[in-house]
Design a protein around this nucleic acid. Structure first.
Lengths: 205, 205
DNA sequence: ACCGAGGTGAACAGTCATGTTCGGAACGGT
DNA sequence: ACCGTTCCGAACATGACTGTTCACCTCGGT
């Protein structure tokens, strides 16, 4: 039951990107892909793949580890930023850029089995939250939003933006701004006469 | 390689809910679950499961069909609503309620193979969009947001809310309002002082 | 008491992914 | 020219899941 991996197939193959990145994408598009398929799309033989990662489980965990690593670096890059809109924008940009890896991480409950990975996950999530908290204290984010909802919404927007980019609907350079604006202001009609200048028709509830 | 389905297992088992609903949840938590596992969590024998749906593919497609059906009904229920906040709230409520089914639908690229299902999917998505469009014309939603971003954001919020409910973080009755508020206003700090104006501290970007 | 519908457990053949082994090719360094 | 490393293709044993069959049970209706 080979489901086509469509757009992925030819373009990415045989390029010299980090192996685990390719694996993450394949396994994301086709969670049930066989190791033979994964190897093919990575441009190596199944034997070689097995030599690097003895079992499928080991491979999946390696991808998870790398995804976490990438996330950690993304958060680190904005750790010193003040809690401003610009800081948030940078966090979003960094996370959206790593969209596939993060999505892989978020979508694989099986990774929870790995204790060290779970520890690092919780850790980086907390650091992520710390950034958001700073923005909250700066008055950029609403003070009343619960932590978990803030985080989940952030994840959701990162995921959506990354997916839109992959589908070609969204220009990579537009993504951070769009996501940030949606996160902060939502998609409701701007308040009439408000700061962002949009003289509109009357309020309409 | 049995990964535990944790919270799902005992509580739901053997209850008399529609079979396909249980299947959707199991297959969502554990996409690689064997039919034996699926049957067990549905509280029936594998033989019986096979009698209803001859092959795994057929089962998956049936779940997809049902998910689409549920979505159609949810949209139908608000099709006559005017494009007000209340109307949007109802759409969100209906969709969040069907969270697991919709998530299953959104996450299974394999379902695209089914032409009829794809047709119905596109159709209900368009009707969904029509509801949003009406809200846009009423000035509830920003006029400038592209259709696809609006839809994707809606999906993201529905998914996030449903997941939060499943994790016990969010009370089902609170979900629609939280999602609606996030969709319309985002999570930024509310405008200070005036009703909707924004005489704020220095802009930070 | 009979009967049919729907459910069950046991068993079986077929298929496929997995993990492993091995002989050999290619390549770079010495 | 030699050697170690790395990759490769082929082949194999194993195990898991699948789909199917069959004999049996257990109800509810007649």
């Amino acid at each position: 039951m080979t489901v086509h991996l469509g757009a992925l197939s030819r373009s990415r193959r045989a390029t010299k990107r980090p192996l685990l990145d390719v694996v993450a994408e394949v396994l994301l598009a086709q969670p049930g892909a066989s190791l033979a398929e994964v190897a093919e799309f990575a441009g190596i033989s199944r034997t070689t793949l097995h030599k690097h990662y003895a079992t499928r489980d080991e491979l999946v965990r390696a991808v998870g580890q790398r995804a976490t690593e990438i996330w950690e670096q993304a958060v680190d890059r904005v750790a010193d930023e003040p809690g401003t809109k610009a800081g948030l924008r940078q966090l979003l940009a960094a996370m959206i850029e790593s969209g596939p890896q993060l999505t892989f991480l978020w979508r694989n409950p099986a990774l929870d089995e790995d204790n060290e990975l779970t520890r690092r996950y919780i850790d980086v999530e907390n650091r992520c939250l710390a950034v958001l908290d700073r923005a909250r204290k700066e008055g950029v984010l609403a003070a009343t939003t619960p932590d978990w909802w803030l985080l989940q919404t952030l994840y959701a927007l990162v995921y959506t933006a990354a997916e839109s980019i992959q589908f070609g609907k969204l220009a990579p350079l537009d993504a951070p701004d769009l996501a940030l604006s949606t996160l902060l202001n939502g998609l409701g009609a701007p308040a009439t006469g408000a700061g962002s200048g949009k003289p509109d028709k009357g309020e309409s509830e």
